[in-house]
């Protein structure tokens, strides 16, 4: 046990994903040794982001405006929609430079074990957008996990009756992983080789 203020910061760091006890201690002792102004810049950055960032009114991507930069870009093709689990997946797909449509962020994948059913995701919002925005093709880019595949199949079944093409990223992505783990070349190949469901 360290002095309470030190321990408090260690505990906060240790709650972050991917940070163990040892890393939390290392970060804390690093911050202990930096200048006050550097420490405030860090804490300001955290608060500033929390204050300014919200969800895009259309696709639920992260944004500081009403609409995110993708939705606000008039050159993007509104007839093709790429469905992802989380907002950070958008950055990964944008990195491939191969997709010119818009996105829809579900907010996760169907997982009864975690109490997440279709109603806990933004599937109803997705169906609403298809009609409004004249979408003709939906690409489901959920993670290549059991839950991601399951969510893709569920969406395909919900959309198919509307006469809209639904496709899934081609395999070749690492099974059981997240999109983050796929490199841009593999992901680009998966996008161009997508298969109709």
């Amino acid at each position: 046990m360290f002095e309470p203020p030190v321990q408090r910061l260690i505990d906060e760091f240790a709650r972050l994903p991917g940070i163990g006890r040892k890393s939390a201690q290392r970060l804390t002792f690093h911050i202990l040794n930096i200048e006050d102004v550097d420490a405030s810049r860090l804490s300001d950055a955290i608060l500033d982001m929390k204050k300014k960032i919200r969800l895009c009114a259309q696709c639920f991507n992260l944004t500081a405006e009403e609409l995110c930069s993708v939705c606000a870009d008039l050159r993007r093709d509104p007839t093709v929609l790429c469905v992802v689990e989380r907002a950070q997946d958008i950055a990964v797909i944008e990195g491939t430079n191969q997709f010119r449509g818009r996105y829809h962020v579900l907010g996760g994948s169907i997982s009864p074990i975690e109490g997440i059913g279709p109603d806990e995701l933004r599937i109803r919002e997705l169906l609403g957008r298809l009609d409004h925005e004249g979408v003709t093709e939906v690409i489901v880019a959920t993670n290549p996990t059991v839950e991601g595949d399951m969510t893709a199949m569920y969406i395909a079944r919900a959309i198919k009756p509307l006469g809209i093409t639904v496709s899934r990223l081609a395999s070749g992505l690492p099974v059981g992983g997240d999109l983050d783990y796929a490199d841009e070349v593999t992901l680009g190949r998966a996008l161009s080789g997508r298969q109709e469901m």
Partner: peptide, 25 residues
């Protein structure tokens, strides 16, 4: 595990389309 969890929570009131998809898998 997911299918059992779904049945455990919902029983008779399970969402049929969700169950269909799990059965498929």
């Amino acid at each position: 595990r997911q299918r059992n969890s779904l049945l455990k929570q919902a029983g008779r009131s399970v969402d049929v389309m969700t169950l269909d998809v799990w059965d498929e898998r």
